[in-house]
Simulated assay, not measured.
Amino acid sequence: MPTIGNIILPDFPLLLAPMEDVSDPPFRRLCKLHGADLMYSEFISSEGLIRDAMKSKQKLDIFDYERPVGIQIFGGDEEAMEMSSRIVDAVQPDLVDINFGCPVKKVVCKGAGAGVLKDVDLMIRLTKAVIKGTNLPVTVKTRLGWDENSINIDEVAERLQDIGVQALTIHARTRAQMYKGHSDWSHIARVKNNPRITMPIFGNGDIDSPEKALEYKNKYGLDGMMIGRAAIGYPWIFNEIKHYFRTGEHLPEPSMKDRIEAARNHLIWSMEWKGERVGIFEMRRHYTNYFKGIHGFKEYKQKLVTTDGAMALMDVFEEIAQVYANYQTV
């Protein structure tokens, strides 16, 4: 069983990836309910935390029912990273995670996220600063390297472990690939098989079905895997994978009733956390995913994304439940 500090995870844990504008407390609550073993906040700007930026501060919200949970920070300035890790420490998550993998230009341009892959010495200094600022276990999420000609994950893993990082999640793409092309987990397996590496190594990238999860588990021999985009609008994927690991069989697909219940809960929890107006607005991007592939759903999706007011939306869900009462998902 992998351990991170005093966190004991189940055998081959499934982690929920930190995703901006997705991995907030309402979404994490759903994923926890459906089998996620360890979750992370959306990534938080260290500079934003220090400036007391409202959006950054709100991302620090964690709840006991979602533990173990980590808060992920990013930044390119040592002092800011140390100060922000002190702020995170005060909130008492179970761990602090550093994002050295985000490929988005606005992050990379600040010498943060995947931008740090071009300067491993800076990565080490930033990580040391975070470790200095917190009493919590520190973990890292990164990529294979900047591009295919500069894959440096072997050196990165050894150096991070040497300064006290307690687990490493590797997205099996380079920064140049962004989220496109093929993810190559063989590089992650090589890191895991390095006799010097003793910290848990988790793989990330393209896990979107129980079959692929089992194939990669058996093929690459890692300590666990992180799931991101495949969980959006489909939190059932965690339990589906676990069931498939145990039995080799598929759980039944979520019924229409399950989908409605998940979307409605997500909405209710979003409104409770963000307030009614913002909760309703920010849920609109999720409905397509909850009801993907449902025949004739366009009219109701339109209602869900244009209706204002909590009571009116509950009426729409009730209407969907009645219309699709006998609908069988295939």
Rank of each mutant, 00 (worst) to 15 (best):
R159P: 10
A325C: 00
I188K: 02
G111E: 03
A114W: 00
V140N: 06
A53Q: 05
A129D: 07
Q328Y: 13
V165C: 10
L160N: 05
T142P: 09
T169I: 09
I151P: 08
A112T: 03
E78N: 10
A114Q: 02
S23R: 14
I98A: 06
T127Y: 04
V22H: 04
C31E: 08
D24I: 14
R277E: 15
H34L: 15
L16P: 13
D147E: 09
N149E: 15
G48L: 00
Q177Y: 12
E276C: 04
K257P: 06
S150D: 12
E211M: 11
R246G: 10
P235A: 03
S41E: 07
F100Y: 01
I294C: 01
S183P: 09
G113W: 06
P25F: 13
G221P: 04
P137C: 13
R29V: 05
S84W: 00
H187R: 00
A325P: 00
K132T: 06
V191P: 06
K257Q: 14
F43A: 10
Y287S: 07
E79T: 12
I260M: 13
K301M: 11
S84L: 01
I268G: 08
I197V: 06
D184P: 02
I124T: 13
D77A: 02
A325Y: 04
P235L: 03
I131G: 07
A17S: 15
I98Y: 03
L267C: 03
I73P: 10
M81P: 01
G113N: 05
M226Q: 14
E79H: 09
D154P: 00
P103Q: 00
K141P: 01
V278G: 04
V108K: 04
I131C: 07
